[in-house]
């Protein structure tokens, strides 16, 4: 169980880091890098949420997104939402 969660967490982190890189045109963000510190805005955040829904099939409510906007925090939120809907 714990191994699975860790693997899932790592995979989500890789996904979110790649997504930040793509949207904000920055090289390889780390787990603690924050979407807004990297140059995200409330408008690019809308694109981020739309892409996550398209690519992952996960609906991320705006308020959940703002609970934590670093790569690691957002990956954890996505994992929680996936688990809850699974």
């Amino acid at each position: 169980m714990s191994t699975q969660t860790t693997t899932a967490g790592a995979a989500s982190q890789d996904y979110v880091a790649a997504l930040f890189a793509r949207l904000l045109n920055v090289p390889a963000p780390g787990p603690d890098d924050d979407f807004f510190v990297l140059g995200g805005t409330s408008l690019s955040a809308m694109d981020l949420i739309a892409l996550i829904e398209q690519e992952r099939g996960v609906q991320l409510p705006v308020r959940d997104f703002y609970r934590g906007t670093s790569v690691a925090e957002l990956a954890a939120t996505l994992d929680q939402l996936s688990e809850a809907s699974a």
Partner: peptide, 21 residues
């Protein structure tokens, strides 16, 4: 305010934009 001024402004904008979208 939610957490801090900047996240408050961002979240408010983003939520409003989402309603309109």
């Amino acid at each position: 305010m939610e957490k801090a001024p900047k996240p408050t402004l961002r979240q408010a904008h983003h939520e409003l934009f989402s309603f309109f979208s």
